[in-house]
């Protein structure tokens, strides 16, 4: 099992549909195994459909505090942010995961926190990438999205999470084939591939073949 080296704050950003929310919830659960006080914040102002709040039962059961707009998952379709988001930068005793909204539009919401996050300087800003998404099929297009996000949120990305997958059709070979894509982005940006995430059902097949493999328990949308 991968040993993640978590900073006090781990931010997950990326193209919409790249898998940020799923990974954020899984990382929060992973963090909770090692640390007592874990927060997860849903700062997504872009997509009102798939939210961290969908995993509230798992998070509650694990004792992880969810910070989300009270409108998340409701019919109130406004880009609201939770007032409790300020505890992310004020409560230095907690480890925090921040699920940022998709693309540059979603990353814009971070601007309110970015100065404090940079001042504390104990964070990791991870870009979630998936080569099977239509607008990020290669290194060039992915780096374009990355630049847009960095520009919007004023925080530099510090690492990559390779979440290349084709949904329920994903094979071990697909994931193996995505390693070169992630490595090329890594070479071009000088950013490390922090981990490669796979559905837990593929973990045994790929364990040992890919460095830093992170198994994901897929989160379901509740309705």
């Amino acid at each position: 099992m991968i040993k993640m080296d978590y900073k006090r704050i781990t931010l997950l950003c990326g193209h919409y549909g790249s898998g940020k929310t799923n990974i954020a919830v899984n990382m929060a659960l992973d963090l909770k195994a090692k640390y007592d006080k874990v927060l997860i914040a849903d700062l997504d102002i872009v997509n009102p459909y798939f939210r961290t709040k969908d995993s509230i039962e798992d998070l509650n059961a694990a004792g992880i505090k969810l910070i989300a707009s009270e409108y998340a998952g409701s019919n109130v379709d406004i880009p609201a942010l939770p007032q409790e988001m300020y505890s992310l930068t004020d409560d230095l005793s907690a480890k925090a995961i921040i699920d940022v909204g998709g693309d540059d539009r979603g990353a814009l919401a971070l601007g309110r926190l970015s100065d404090k996050i940079k001042l504390e300087n104990n964070y990791e800003m991870l870009l979630v990438i998936n080569k099977f998404r239509p607008l990020t099929p290669d290194a060039e297009s992915t780096i374009e999205v990355m630049a847009e996000i960095e520009n919007a949120c004023k925080i530099k990305i510090t690492g990559l999470v390779n979440n290349s997958n084709l949904g329920y059709l994903t094979t071990g070979e697909d994931v193996l084939n995505s390693v070169e894509y992630a490595n090329e982005i890594s070479r071009l940006t000088n950013l490390p591939v922090v981990c490669t995430t796979v559905n837990e059902t593929l973990y045994n097949e790929l364990n040992g073949k890919i460095e830093n493999l992170f198994p994901l328990k897929l989160q379901k949308k509740i309705n």
Binding site: G17, F132, P137, S141, G167
Partner: peptide
């Protein structure tokens, strides 16, 4: 950006409509 159409991609329904 070159999308090779014969290849499988992971898309949202809304994106699939737009690209199609």
């Amino acid at each position: 950006m070159v999308l090779k159409m014969a290849d499988k991609v992971l898309m949202k329904g809304n994106e699939a409509i737009a690209e199609a």
